[in-house]
Design a protein around this nucleic acid. Structure first.
Length: 662
RNA sequence: GCCAGCGUAGCUCAAUUGGCAGAGCAAUCGCCUUGUAAGCGAUAGGUUAGGGGUUCAAGUCCCCUCGCUGGCUCCA
């Protein structure tokens, strides 16, 4: 008698033989609650999918990255079902999982109101409670078109299936992928009735009841397939988690992020403001913010001086001819303030970038190869006409100052220069307390560029090599380059794990061409230099905002606007603290004595709220020992610290740029 | 720029159905003289973003403008 046919598979690293028609869930002995899907040969699949001979099966836990994505995608389906039950006319867009949650786009006649959102969420809870089954069904293109005849956006997705357009539309791959089409039916557990269905690649949770915790967050409009010229759909954002605690932790994280918001801290700590009277995106720095900014700039200047940079200055406005020559008026006019007409019809523009100015400095006289690399540095203030909806505090302003430099070098010097430049950048960022980086390489935008393809390819390759040499993770950003050359940007993670774009390095073979820049080589021939654009902070304002949020306002001592405050127990102790103040001031420390008629407790509270790193308290006991009570802003304290020791500790923390206070 | 929400004292927020614009903090002036995150009292602070409309009566309802917030698109 022949043996029953068997499949030979690998389950969680162990080889096994199982009966034909065994499902992934059976092979994994999955409970469908903690293990909610299977990774089969590296592809996520439903637990109900049958295995084939030779399959390699791994469990997908709901609290893994893949598991959360499946959970969120399934929750997006529940959202869409709830919306179509409450708003039968709503047409479906796409509904992928995203970082921390999911969304689904709908075409509806009226945008959702906050009340709609609440009733949708309520309906979703009912669907979750019912425990509807997610059932996968393979369909042909024709069947899919027939079933989805009332869903015009889904039909469009079927049409572009597998094309570049499908890849380009964020999230569309979740619906159609590039292989066979599948529909997921939601089946009522008791009646077996089909409650809802959606075109979807899957996989999904076994049932809706497996969703442990979710919450709808907000509504927003979003352009269909991310194109500004397409109609706007109504997007509903939500979040979903593997447990109620995880959801709660996420909501707490959002609150924490809100407390760190640089716009809020900027007002609380009296650092800067963006007065309506001046205009959107145009900030003023108050004295305390000014101190931080000045110290940031001073240190950067010092480092650049040591790094072989020369300092230049250039004006904020120029005749249009300069930006015609640079190509900005052809490629960047939308991002510029409109021109001012002066001198009988002459157009003047505010500069959106400093590079053309620096090119003129390079070109002011003949240059020798002996001068290269020539590094021109400027804190250059630029003005860009940002669309009204995108302006955001200091991180997206209309006027800002770049720590901008342009490096002119030979082709031979380029690789070394990029290498040392990246090291210089990362080093400097570490001094400002950021140390978790990755790099991003932005390549040519096929619709917006100047110069030859092979020149772009060469520049991109050079940048890639420099990036790889750093041994950091490198992420590609196709089409993200500026019009004149590819770029590497340094992305840094802050204290609560958010990623910010910091430094940018751009390689440019094109502007030297347009400006006809030349140097005389050793053999007497005229040669074209290569140009590197780079900004380390990006913009000082943005960097300031990132640090403000990174430190939650508690800047390390060397950057703190007030580094130490003297707090007397009573008025009679003020003169003693004045002496301590004088000693600190002689060492260049920014110190104040709080001689107001508040009580000591209130003075401590005020200093804590202002996040002053060091508090020096003095009463009779301290004075008798020529000491102070040395309090740190974390609330800890050393009593009876001799004044000279306290001074030395503060001076050391500032001079050595300590990250912590002690 | 597009969609939605919001705009009350410097800040955080009240104001019942459309019915006298209010509190805490901050500020100013006093009192208190103090040992580890808010002492007490008084004073001042407002064209409720601006403009128009409905109404006996508008912070509240309607329209327009401006600004901000969250997204989309874009970006240092």
């Amino acid at each position: 008698m022949p043996a029953a046919p068997e499949l030979h598979i690998t389950v969680a690293g162990t080889q096994r033989a199982v009966a034909v028609a065994t499902t992934a869930g059976e092979a994994l002995e999955a409970d469908g609650r903690t293990v909610i899907a299977a990774m089969v040969n590296g592809e996520p699949r439903d637990l109900t999918r049958e295995l084939a001979d030779g399959d390699v099966v791994e469990p997908v836990a709901i609290d893994s990255e893949d598991g959360r994505a499946i959970l969120r995608h399934s929750t997006a389906h529940v959202l869409a079902q709830a919306v179509q039950e409450l708003f039968p006319e709503a047409k479906l867009g796409i509904g992928p999982p995203v970082e921390n949650g999911f969304y689904y786009d709908f075409d509806v006649a009226e945008p959702f109101t906050p009340a709609d959102l609440r009733s949708i969420e309520k309906r979703m809870q009912q669907i979750v409670k019912q425990g509807q089954r997610f059932d996968r069904r393979v369909v042909s293109d024709e069947e899919a078109r027939a079933e989805l005849a009332n869903e015009p956006y889904k039909l469009e997705l079927i049409d572009i299936k597998g094309s570049d357009a499908a890849q380009a539309a964020e999230g569309a791959g979740v619906e159609v992928g590039s292989g066979e089409l599948t529909v997921y039916d939601n089946i009522h557990p008791r009646t077996g009735e089909q409650c809802w269905k959606d075109l979807c690649r899957g996989p999904h949770l076994p049932t809706t009841r497996v969703i442990p915790a979710f919450k709808l967050m907000r509504t927003a409009a979003a352009y269909w397939r991310g194109k500004e010229t397409n109609p706007q759909l109504q997007r509903v954002y939500g979040t979903a988690w593997e447990s109620k605690d995880a959801l709660k932790a996420y909501l707490t994280f959002l609150e924490e992020a809100e407390k760190r918001d640089h716009r809020r801290l900027g007002a609380e700590l009296d650092l800067f403001s963006i007065p309506d009277e001046i205009g959107s995106g145009l900030a003023v720095f108050h004295p305390k913010g000014g101190v931080i900014r000045r110290v940031m700039e001073d240190y950067s200047r010092q480092r650049h001086e040591r790094g072989g940079y020369e300092f230049v200055y250039s004006p904020h406005a120029t005749k249009s001819a300069l930006f015609e020559k640079s190509g900005h008026l052809d490629w960047y006019a939308d991002g510029m303030y409109p021109p001012m007409q002066l001198d009988g019809g002459q157009d003047y523009y505010l500069k959106p970038m400093n590079c053309p100015m620096h090119n003129l400095i390079f070109d002011a006289r003949g240059r020798s190869y002996r001068e290269l690399p020539l590094r021109l540095f400027e804190f250059g203030t630029v003005y860009r006409y940002e669309k009204s909806g995108v302006v955001h505090g200091l991180t997206r302003a209309r006027g800002f100052t770049q720590d901008d430099a342009h490096i002119y070098c030979t082709k031979e010097q380029m690789a070394d220069e990029l290498d040392s430049l990246l090291t210089f950048v990362l080093d400097l960022l570490r001094d400002y307390g950021l140390d978790d980086f990755h790099l991003e390489l932005s390549t040519k935008d096929p619709e917006k560029f100047i110069g030859d393809d092979h020149v772009w390819a060469e520049a991109t390759d050079t940048l890639r090599q420099a990036a790889e040499k750093q041994g950091l993770e490198l992420v590609m950003d196709p089409g993200g380059a500026a019009f004149y050359g590819p770029k590497i940007s340094v992305q840094a993670k802050d204290a609560i794990g958010r990623t910010w774009q910091m430094s940018t390095l751009q390689l440019d073979f094109n502007l030297p061409e347009r400006f006809d820049l030349e140097y005389t080589a050793a053999d007497g021939t005229r040669q074209r230099p290569v140009m590197i654009h780079r900004a380390l902070f990006g913009s000082i304002e943005r960097f300031f905002a990132v640090l403000l949020e990174h430190y939650a306002g508690a800047f390390p001592a060397w950057l703190a606007p007030v580094q130490a405050v003297g707090i007397p127990i009573a008025d009679e102790h003020v003169p003693y603290l004045r002496e301590v103040e004088a000693k600190l001031r002689a060492e260049g420390i920014r110190v104040e004595v709080d001689a107001s008629d508040d009580r000591m407790q209130k003075k401590i509270r005020n200093a804590q709220k202002q996040k002053v790193p060091f508090m020096l308290l003095a009463g009779d006991e301290d004075i008798s020992k020529n000491a102070v009570s040395f309090r740190y802003r974390d609330g800890s304290q050393n009593n009876g610290v001799p004044v000279d020791e306290a001074v030395a500790e503060i001076v050391a923390a500032v001079r050595e740029r300590h990250q912590g206070d002690r």
